[in-house]
Amino acid sequence: MPLPDDFLPPVPRTRLTVLSADGTRLSVEVHGPDDAPTVLLGHGWTCSAGFWGRVLHRLGDDVRAVVYDQRGHGRSELVAPSACTATALVDDLEAVLRATVRAGERAVVAGHSMGAMALVALAGERPDVLHEKVCAALLASTGVGGLVEEVRLMPHPGPLRTVARAVTERGMGDTRLLTLLPPWARRSAISHMTLSPAADRHQRAYCTDVVLACPPQTRAGFARMLADLDLGHHVVALDVPTLVLCGTEDRLTPLRHSRRIDAALPHPVGLVELPGIGHMTPVQTPDAVADAVRRLVRDHHVSAGAATA
């Protein structure tokens, strides 16, 4: 049962390797024409650059899309669990921005899940980079703290709360647990976590494959980081026009995260709630994600030369 063609990411026009602050090699792809506005897309935990394929097909030649593999994911270098930190993700994002966004230009940056968290962290830790390189932001299906507490993988009635938390934490981070499950159970577990019941069989098959392709050590390393993450205080620093987008059936980062972020943003430009959609919005509703990106480009992109306002 071959996947429909649009799940296959387009072939990048060029490809480069960018070194992060600690020397980690990051694989970066550039799509679309050289003179189009730059959009940078950051994927989430256990995904890879190719995860943006369906969105890239929709953006076509209208933008110059930069996608990269987060450290430990896809074709980027594997790192020790101790190097899976929020600051490392900020370093990586900065390195990629500096290597790909042309002088004077400010790019639209879209992050999904952990990719969006990296952008919020960058705003808090390196406001200068934000102001130099980023003109607008899309935060898709994300949260900024209390992630494990609010995951809705299973109903957790009062007394069972701690048990539920423990199971959730392990289930997401434990490298063996997933592999111990029989393939069908593994697949339905991943589909359950990442997609809503409305997802079709291609979306299910694809998302499970993507998640399972993530090296176990990376999955574990970032699971630990995510469990303790707290970026709530950085949201106010994200002072570029920011659009928030989330599916109403998101189990991993439920909608209330997005509502809270939207309320705290200094420069919110909208909250898009996608009815019936799960966590993997770029796969389940690529049209909505591409539209959001386009809207930010149209309204806020700063091209080289037009800057210095």
Binding site: P2, L3, F7, L8, S48, G50, G53, D209, L212, A213
Partner: peptide, 13 residues
Amino acid sequence: VTDPHLRAVLTPR
């Protein structure tokens, strides 16, 4: 080949 994208590229039709 664990990467589903590469698998799709490599699977003949």
